[in-house]
Amino acid sequence: MLSVDNLVVRYGAVSAVRDLSLKVGRGELVALLGPNGAGKSSTINALTGLVTPASGRIVLDGQDISRVRTEDRIRAGLTSTPEGRHIFANLTVGENLRLGAAIRRDPKGVRQDIERFLALFPVLSERYGQAAGTLSGGEQQMLAIARSLMSRPKLLLLDEPSLGLAPKIVVQIFDFIGELKAEGLTLLVVEQNARQALRFADRVYVVSAGTLRHSGPPSSLADEHGLFNLYIGG
């Protein structure tokens, strides 16, 4: 579904991502792991087009989207829930969900999807008319993921969904991510929290200092114990 070849991202003279290649197959949940500053978020931003890669190819469903604008990538079925959630704090919960469906032209389907997510997350239903900025961190993360799903993406990129959340909430979030995978959604999850990310992952990539260090099934990480500790820890 998604294939990235030799991606390079630079900020001025600093290379954040060096020659990174990865693949995500249809229906797969792929985890991209690595420590802080490894270039994970830069990779995601390059995939969504918010930063322009210095070189490399990004192919979605056989179509080269390397030079396509962010807006059109979303329309092509790739969506991302950014690191730090970035919900629209000054808009209500309902307005956030509606904006998530901005590219859709089926008001009825949109309404049904909103109802589905409200049923799934009763908190969002209670807070429907409130400013989203008043939600707790975990609730905001739920809202951010729901908002991404409102566009009915083929591929969802999740950037650090566990960031700044209590362990109990993190487990809930990943339970939900597991459900999404079970429903057939393709996911690329970027994480520092390896234990949670590995619960449902089909395959794992490990990056550090902008370079790919390891790839394989989750079990391969357990084998190479040193690698696990070195790049991921805890």
Binding site: F88, N90, L91, A102, I103
Partner: peptide, 15 residues
């Protein structure tokens, strides 16, 4: 209204 706070994320909505 959303763009007044966070333009990049508005673009992530495909707008």
């Amino acid at each position: 209204r959303a763009a007044s706070r966070d333009f990049a994320t508005v673009r992530l909505m495909g707008i």
